[in-house]
């Protein structure tokens, strides 16, 4: 058990006078408590106005992505004591518009996603009485891609996105490659149409922030480099 001071970024759109500020809360933290547990404790017993998204609290829904001690993560997956610090800073994900406290607008996340036509494009009709066949080796090619939970941590960490809010973002590229690499997909060009653009793939400068930020240990940068190769291949005909 330890007393931790949480320094939390606050912003209430209905209180323009206060604007953006940092508020401190102290909490006795028990072993096993995650940062999300701590935020809930504060909200439930100290200050009901503290606002953040949360749902599954088991790392699969992606609601509680935020910046904890400077690092993007899911609050529900970070053990508070493991931070080994009696001061913990909690900020909303960077790069997105803040709606209130730790809640950010997901609009850029959805826009980037929609641009890559994020669904299986199959032109050959599937068999009527059974599944399409896909070998375990073919299926393995989308491991590390299909697990994305759309939490937004990667795109929030990306300097290209900070500079250009229309930049599609690593999450969108990861999703595009999840379909391009799927042996059943026949719409490679459709998925990649939006990528060869000033807000697209070429604005990735392989800084690898997205890889570091992903709470699910996925590798958007690798997906991006594979897509770049595909795009070059398409262009060279």
């Amino acid at each position: 058990m330890a007393m931790i001071t949480f320094k939390i970024n606050r912003y209430n759109p209905d209180d323009e006078r206060r604007g953006h500020c940092v508020q401190e809360y102290k909490l006795d933290v028990q072993k096993g408590q995650t940062v999300l547990d701590c935020l809930n404790e504060i909200k439930w017993h100290q200050d009901g106005t503290l606002t953040f998204r949360r749902s599954c609290r088991s790392g699969i829904c992606g609601s509680c992505a935020m910046t904890i001690n400077g690092v993007n993560n899911l609050a529900c997956e970070v053990q508070a004591l493991a931070l080994k610090s009696n001061v913990v800073t909690v900020e909303p994900l960077r790069g997105y518009t803040v709606i209130k406290d730790l809640v950010v607008s997901l609009d850029p996340l959805v826009d980037g996603l929609l641009a890559v036509k994020p669904y299986l494009i199959a032109k050959t009709p599937p068999p009527t009485d059974h599944e399409r066949l896909q070998s375990p080796e073919e299926r393995e090619k989308i491991d590390g891609l299909y697990e994305c939970i759309l939490c937004g941590a990667c795109t929030s960490s990306c300097p290209s996105f900070w500079a250009d809010k229309k930049y599609l973002g690593p999450h969108a590229f990861l999703k595009a490659y999840r379909f391009v690499a799927d042996s059943r997909d026949e719409g490679q060009q459709e998925h990649m149409e939006a990528l060869d653009d000033k807000h697209g793939l070429w604005r990735c400068h392989t800084i690898f922030n997205c890889v570091e930020a992903c709470p699910k240990d996925l590798n958007p940068t690798k997906a991006i480099s594979e897509l770049k190769k595909e795009l070059v291949k398409q262009k060279m005909g």
Binding site: Y119, L120, E131, R132, S135, R139, D182, R184
Partner: peptide
């Protein structure tokens, strides 16, 4: 058919 990535 919709594209769900089942194990095989």
């Amino acid at each position: 058919h919709y594209g769900a990535p089942f194990s095989r």
